[in-house]
């Protein structure tokens, strides 16, 4: 186990490096730069700015300086667009926000989705099954850029129950709608995956054996069926979690929550290289970390898998 973690961390560092170089290269290839603006800056002014940020250095040197800055001072550089803050500021500000509603959404999706999926599988073809399938499909077909405005329309304008956006230091009223909008489609996917893999397990031989032995249903499901049926679901959790943290662009855009999703996507549009790379490193290491956790979970559930 310890060896496994060590190995993964050893691989993680070059992974991040490759990731960084690739996205840096892609960004540099994109037309325009951070200071391309509607009113083209005089060459003189552009030169000053480039000199200030070291953008007049050759690309490899820019990248090198950036990496050295991270390694020595944990400095992820400045934002070229939002000039009164650094990438560290942006992460310190936005990441806790994204993480808060991301984790809550994740828990909601896993708990509600998982429970719905198991319930539907156990009572296959009953009203509960149809209800669960209906709800999950319904939840999945509404893109969150449709659901977001509808939620605001209903809960803010018509009912007046919840504020229509903002974060306000993370008050619970401000968290509810972003969580609903973010978690539902993942919840639906998890429910469907759980249902189908649960059904598969329930039909497998060892469950039949268990039934033949006359074990009660509850014992069969909890002690024997649940764990193996979670396998494909767990594979999905990694991408789902990363999706919830990074796919939060729409949530940030619609609810004005101030998370990093918005900064991330906009950094591509703004050609804000340092912000883009800083967030890439952050989200990249989150992904790697989470995938590692998933692999450990996997091995724990299915002892036949060797790490």
């Amino acid at each position: 186990m310890f060896n496994f973690i060590l190995r993964r961390v050893a691989v993680a560092i070059p992974t991040l490096l490759i990731l960084l170089v690739a996205s840096f290269w892609l960004m540099q290839t994109a037309p325009g730069g951070p200071f391309t603006s509607e009113r083209p800056l005089p060459q003189q002014v552009l030169d000053n700015i480039n000199a200030k940020y070291g953008l007049d250095d050759p690309l490899w040197k820019q990248l090198w300086n950036y990496l050295v800055g991270i390694a020595t001072e944990f400095d992820f550089g400045p934002s070229y667009k939002y000039k009164d803050r650094t990438v560290n500021d942006i992460i310190a500000q936005g990441f806790p926000v994204t993480l808060t509603y991301g984790i809550i959404s994740f828990l909601v999706a896993v708990i509600v989705g998982g429970a719905l999926g198991v319930a539907a599988a156990i009572r296959q073809n009953s009203w509960l099954d149809y209800f669960a399938v209906g709800v999950t499909i319904g939840a999945q077909v509404l893109p969150n850029f449709v659901m977001g405005p509808i939620l605001i329309l209903v809960f803010t304008l018509w009912l007046g129950w919840l504020p229509g956006g903002g974060w306000n230091g993370g008050q619970w009223q401000h968290i509810i709608m972003p969580v609903i909008a973010l978690s539902t489609s993942y919840m639906a996917s998890i429910a469907r995956l759980t249902r189908s893999s649960m059904l598969e397990v329930l039909r497998s031989n060892f469950i039949r054996t268990a039934r033949a032995k006359g074990l009660p249903d509850r014992t069969i499901i909890l002690r024997h069926a649940l764990k193996p049926s979670l396998l494909p679901v767990i594979s999905y959790l990694g991408p789902a979690f990363v999706g919830m943290v990074t796919g939060s662009f729409i949530i940030d855009a619609i609810f004005g929550t101030g998370g990093i999703g918005y900064f991330y996507v906009n950094s591509a549009f703004n050609r804000d290289y340092a912000v883009m790379m800083g967030l890439t490193i952050l989200l990249g290491s989150m992904t790697i970390l989470f995938n590692m956790v998933i692999d450990i979970l996997y091995a724990w559930i299915d002892p036949k898998i060797r790490l």
Binding site: T15, V242, G243, V265, A268, F269, T280, L283, N291
Partner: peptide
């Protein structure tokens, strides 16, 4: 992992 560490929406953009 490397591919997945880049959020796919971002790659697409």
């Amino acid at each position: 992992d490397i591919f997945m560490s880049i959020p796919y929406m971002f790659v697409l953009i």
